[in-house]
Structures are given as C-alpha cells and as structure tokens.
Design a binder for these strands. Structure first.
Length: 504
RNA sequence: GGCGAGGUAGCCAAGUGGUUAGGCAACGGUUUGCAAAACCGUCACACGCAAGUUCGAAUCUGGUCCUCGCCUCCA
C-alpha cells in the first residue's frame, strides 16, 4: 500500500498522513456561507477534498467526511435585507443551490453537513467551557476569546502576535477596542444589534461568532481530535488559527492532526472579486460548458497552486468563453468516446489469448494511487489517464475490421481502469451518449445550427454518396463544415458533431 | 513592514539531484471515395537571471529580477 503524504500547513512541509485510526479517517472541511450562488472558488476545495475522500475510500479506508454550512452570518443577514426576505429562507435557498451545483460537479455528498442553526446547544456549551477555563470573557453582551491565553497562538499561520499587533489597532472601531482585552481577541458570541436575528444565551441575546461553529460541530461529529481539516488558503488566518486556539484550550487535546489548504482560483491572473468585474457564478460556466469540464480543468492543476482561469471577454466585457473549460470538455469528449468505443466491442471480438496488457492500462490504477498518495497530485493522475486512454484506443483500433479482436485480459483490464477513473477521480461517471449529445446540442444551439437542417443535409449527402456523386457529397460536407458541423462516417452510418471551437 | 507561494518549450501544466509526465495549438504520416474520429511522428536535451556546491542541478545553497497571495469579510 502506498504511504500517503500530504502537505501539512502546521508543519509547513509534506508529511506522512497518519490518521489516529488508519481504518477510519475523520475529515472536516470548511463549507460555504450560504448567501449567494456558488462561484468557482467554492468548486475547487469541494473537488479537491472529494478526490481525497474518493481516493481514501478506494484504498479501503473508511472515511467520515464532514463539511459544515454557515447559515447564520453577517453576509446572509445583509443580503436577506437587500432581498427583503428572511435570512433563514435565503440561507436555505442558497444551500440548495450550492448542493445542486456541487452534485453537478460529481462531488459526493459529505456524510454530515452540519448547520450552525442546528447546533446552538453545542456552541453555547463550548463557549461556556472556554469562559469557565479562563480563556474567554463576556463584555457588554459579546463573548471574546482571549488570544494570549493560548500559548501556541500563531502556530498554524506561522506568525507571532507581536509582529501583527502594529497594523491591527487601526482597523478596529473604538468601541470594539474598548471591549477587547487584546486587539486580536475574537468574538465567540456576538451580542444582537437592533433588527438582527438573535438567539438566547447566558450572555444575552445574540449569535455565534464565525469560528466557534467549526470547533463545536467538528467535535460533535468527529471527536475532540480528528485527522484532517481542509479549506481554502485564506482560511489559515484567522479562521483556522482561531479554531485551533479555542478548541485546544477547551479540550487540552490536539485539535486536528493534519491541516490541508487549497490554493485560490484567479481570473486572468487577478484575484476574483466583484469590484474587478471578473466575478461569475458557477452556473454561468455551466451554461457554457459541461460542469464536469470544470471538474476536469481544476484537477489538471495541483491543489496548492493557484488556478489561473482565463476568461475571454468581448469588447463590451461580455463573457465569450472559458478556454480551459472548453479544452477540458474536449478531453471529456475523448474520454466518453473511448468509453463508447469500448462499450461497443461485441463478444465475438474478444478472444482468449495471452497478449500482454499494455503497461499504461495494467498499471494505471496503481499509478493513479501513487500520484494521489504524493500530496494528491491530480495533475499527474490526469497525465496517466491520457496515456491510458491512448492505449485503450489503440486496442480498440485493433478490433476494427473483419479480423480485428481484443484479448479477454485487455478487455477486462480496460473495464477496471474505466471504473477506477470514475471511482477515484469522479470523471466519466455520466452516461457517455447522454454527455456527448448534451454537448452537441448545446453547441448547436449556441451557434444557431438547427438539428432538422443537419439531418436533411445528412440525408442529401447519403443520397449523393449512394449515387457515387462524390462532388455533391463533398459540397454538403463543406456546407456543414462552414457552420462547424463535422460529419463522422462510420460502418454503422453517418453521425455528426460540432467542432470544439466555433467556425470562424 | 511581517509571513508565504511561484517563474518549466507557442500556450497550459507535472516533476524537485542523474532515467522523453501529460494536454492544447501547429505541421507531417497511417486510415478514409473525401473527411472526421483514433493512432504514430515532429516542434521538445525546456526549466527567470547570473554565481556556488557536485562526477552530474530545472531540482541543493546564497544572491538577484519579476509576478502573486495572506496579514481585513473572502473558497
């Protein structure tokens, strides 16, 4: 079995991943704050940790995967006010939206998706514990965690309180500064302001601070110490640093054994933000390309590197295309076409003989496991996939013609390979024909190509070919090609598709 | 200011002391009535710059230039 190595933010290096119980891995990932539809930055962590979970399960580990939902938060309250709807209703609606999008990306559902709104008891108990132990204090309806009470504060983000204090004071309003004993003390409980939703507590009405939910909920579902905590790079400080501080002060135990953080998605080498105008919702990308193309694309880059997404815009700034998603979709067409070819091999073509199975196929699953065991190198896994599919196609080529055939061993190995692509990478899980038709129909629609028109052209060409009037047949081909329609003559008849790029 | 990441062939992107990752684009070939798809080959002895260590460096060390991120809500 492969030794799994993952980069650990705490130690700042690649480290052996050693769950407390090797047979039962406990993972917690920071999920979304549900105030808007998901964007590409939500997709990346989801996919990264999804592959990790899939991989661990595929090598026989039991995994409990928890991803929280922050459904009580300033941004939700603010957005709900703007929309003139109840915060709970907005949060619920956006959770549905998020779940739908993540499912379309072929992410497995976590085993638990705890919501803040359903864990008040746990949160209040944890805050009380921190007060009792002298790590937190109430002040005017708020409760703050006292940062200097945790000797190791800063160990995750590798910074010292002293280094940070300089800039901190100028960012805080005077009232907050007065309530806090230390500028970096953070709120465990926020006293309710006028017009905000609030919940009862021993310290007055209010709501939980941002960080405490993760400590309370991870402990509930995974215990006081769990194996791996994941999230975006931006969460290292202060969110995860604070989680460690409050959790370890409350339990006296190591909070989490391994910390994993995924890099950001950038748009045209700039940070994605609404003010820069490079922000888009995942759904807009899903309109342009298959969601699975987004998944594939994200997996071609190592999870810790920034993913630089290019956006093609026209002169008015309207979105034309995502070249990377478009290319990834073409690769998926290749994958699904390969599956289709493989699926079409008749029983008579499969012969009992002992040809060597190509290494690219036979060793594929092991190679993918090795790549993923080395800090989840999905890019390398995709590289193996390319070589493997090439070898599969070569074998499929050899089945063509009257005498063409494939050895039973190869046939069976290919079956296993395609299965592990689905299982471990979450790629190729769709029905191949459905995927390819969807892509074709979407492109046809985008380019104003009518299916009836194509069908009639095909019929005309078939007639011309039957009459051996190749000049006329080619004229039809040219006519179709001018609009990006490619014809594929096969022994079973002529099918058609639309070129990846629109015809110019 | 503090902490950190990165600069790899036309483009994207793995690798991190010796052994062609991979993809896209382009071009040539096999195949095809012509195509497409698929496959083969070329571009590719590439690694920001200039030094040092080493038998050997894209990979290690110190320097230098550039890009980016976090330190404030953010995935």
């Amino acid at each position: 079995m492969n030794q799994i190595t993952l980069f650990d933010t705490l130690e700042n290096k690649k480290k052996k991943f050693e769950p407390a119980d090797p047979d039962h891995v406990k993972i917690y990932v920071c999920g979304p704050t549900t105030y808007d539809d998901a964007h590409i930055g939500h997709a990346r962590p989801c996919i990264v940790y999804d592959v990790l979970v899939r991989y661990l399960r595929s090598i026989g580990r039991q995994v409990t995967y928890v991803r929280n939902v922050t459904d009580i938060d300033d941004k939700i309250i603010q957005r709900a006010n703007e929309n003139q709807e109840e915060p709970e209703a907005l949060a619920a609606r956006m959770f549905e939206s998020y779940s739908t999008d993540m499912t379309r990306l072929w992410n497995l559902s976590p085993d638990h998706q705890p919501k803040v709104s359903e864990h008040f008891d746990e949160i209040r108990a944890l805050i009380q514990k921190l007060i009792d132990r002298g790590n937190a204090y109430a002040a005017d309806g708020d409760v703050y965690f006292h940062v200097p009470s945790h000797a190791d504060y800063g160990k995750l983000s590798h910074r010292k309180l002293d280094d940070m204090e300089v800039g901190a004071s100028e960012r805080l309003d005077a009232a907050t500064t007065r309530r806090k004993k230390h500028p970096y003390d953070f709120a465990l409980w926020k006293g309710a302001k006028e017009g905000e939703p609030s919940w009862e507590s021993p310290w007055g009405p209010g709501r939980p601070g941002w960080h405490i939910e993760c400590s309370a909920m991870s402990m509930k579902y995974l215990g006081e110490t769990f194996d791996l905590h994941g999230g975006g790079l931006d969460l290292v400080f202060p969110h995860h640093e604070n989680e460690i501080a409050q959790s370890e002060c409350a339990t006296g135990q190591c909070y989490c054994r391994h910390w994993m953080h995924n890099g950001f998605v950038q748009i045209n080498k700039e940070k994605m933000s609404k003010s820069l105008g490079n922000f888009f919702r995942l759904r807009e990308a899903f309109d342009k390309n298959e969601p699975e193309a987004v998944r594939y694309s994200l997996l071609t880059v190592h999870y810790r590197s920034p993913f630089n997404l290019e956006m093609d815009l026209d002169e008015e700034g309207a979105l034309l295309a995502f070249p990377q998603f478009r290319d990834a979709e073409a690769r998926l067409e290749y994958l699904y076409n390969t599956k289709l070819r493989y699926g079409a091999i008749g029983a008579k073509k499969i012969k009992d003989r002992d040809d060597e199975v190509p290494q690219e196929i036979e060793a594929f699953t092991e190679r993918v496991h090795t790549a993923l065991a080395d800090d989840l190198n999905t890019a390398q896994a995709i590289g193996h996939l390319s070589l493997c599919l090439k070898a599969v196609n070569e074998l499929c080529d050899a089945t063509q013609g009257k005498k063409g055939s494939m050895s039973r061993r190869s046939y069976e190995e290919i079956g296993k390979v395609l299965q592990s692509v689905e299982q471990v990478l979450g790629l190729g899980c769709d029905d191949p024909a459905a995927f390819l038709d969807r892509v074709r129909d979407r492109r046809a629609k985008e380019r104003g190509v009518e299916i009836e028109w194509v069908e009639s052209c095909l019929a005309r060409r078939a007639e011309a070919r039957a009459a051996k009037d190749f000049a006329a047949a080619d004229a039809v081909r040219d006519e179709l090609a001018a609009r990006g329609v490619e014809m594929l003559d096969t022994p079973q008849g002529t099918s058609w598709r639309l070129s990846v790029q629109a015809a110019v």
